[in-house]
Amino acid sequence: MTTMTGTAVGQEPTWTVDPPEWWTVVPTTRSESAGAIAAWQDGVVEAVRRALELRIAEDEASEGDAPGDEISAEERAELHQQVAAAVENLRTYADEVPEGTRVVALLGLRDHGPVPVLVSVAAGEPDAPDDALLRAVGATGGTPFEAPNVEYLDLPDGDGVRVTRLDIAPDGSAWLSIGLGRRTETSDGVVDTVILWRTQDLFIVDTVSEALDELLPAVRTTGSAT
């Protein structure tokens, strides 16, 4: 849902996100009109609500309720209100991220609202080491619970890296993060793509990790803006 075209900071390589199924680019007031934002919001609320209603109906059926039982009007109204609030928070969050970064959200997860991830693209130096990319995806820095797991990926359009790490916050809560990075060469030099996601819900890690692998090739760079 929603194809996004944008530019990154630095030398401003142009880039697009053509999201796979169940992914959507979250619009911002910096780049989309009020009408486009309202249409996006209505569409996402409806998609998430229907997915959650289906899950509820499946759960009720598994508990022995008769097939075809409908969700009550009161349940539907409450669910719609919860989903609308979650989508509005997502939209607000998209306006708060730095220029050159966009929020892309995964929809349709069981018992979950939209799952946001951050996508950014920036120009790099052709002869520079990949330290900056590794740092951006979380391979270095901070105080992880244990050494981050770093996997190097051989991608069709460049060199990639996936970093999984667990951090313990000062309050004792655990945060797992996955960072995907890709370095590609264009006619204008080197371009780095970074996707970041962090969560406290360890039950959805495998599902979201697979979806992130589908999102990365959907971020396409086309060189420097002219």
Rank of each mutant, 00 (worst) to 15 (best):
L215P: 08
G181C: 03
V191I: 11
V208L: 02
D127P: 03
V161E: 06
P217E: 11
T207N: 12
A128K: 00
D201I: 09
P156N: 14
L153G: 12
L134P: 03
G124D: 08
W175N: 04
V190Y: 01
R182A: 05
S177E: 02
A211K: 13
G142I: 09
A139H: 03
P129A: 05
L212P: 07
E125V: 14
R182D: 07
D159T: 13
V121W: 00
D171S: 03
A147C: 06
L166T: 11
T193E: 05
G141E: 08
A139R: 02
R220I: 15
W175G: 00
L176Q: 10
V121R: 01
G223W: 01
P148C: 05
L212K: 11
V137N: 00
E210M: 11
P156L: 06
N149M: 13
V137Y: 02
I195W: 04
G158A: 09
R182L: 12
T143M: 13
T186H: 05
P217A: 07
L176V: 04
R165I: 04
T222C: 02
S187Q: 10
L134H: 07
L166Y: 06
L155P: 06
P126M: 08
L196K: 03
A218D: 09
P144K: 15
I168R: 07
S224H: 15
A122D: 11
V219P: 06
P126R: 06
E185N: 04
L176F: 03
A128F: 00
R183N: 04
A136W: 01
L196W: 01
I204N: 06
A136T: 12
G124P: 03
Y152K: 12
L216S: 03
L134I: 06
A139T: 02
A128V: 00
T184M: 12
L216D: 02
V190A: 10
V161I: 15
A225M: 10
Y152H: 15
F145N: 12
L215E: 01
L134N: 07
L196Y: 03
I204G: 06
T207E: 15
G172F: 01
V205K: 13
D130T: 09
A123H: 10
P156R: 06
A132L: 14
T184D: 02
G172N: 03
V163D: 08
V219Q: 06
T207G: 09
D167P: 03
A139D: 10
T143I: 12
E146N: 12
D213S: 15
A128E: 05
L155T: 09
D127K: 03
D188N: 08
W175F: 07
D154L: 11
V190P: 04
D130A: 04
L180Y: 04
D201E: 14
L155C: 11
S120E: 02
D131S: 11
I168G: 05
A136M: 05
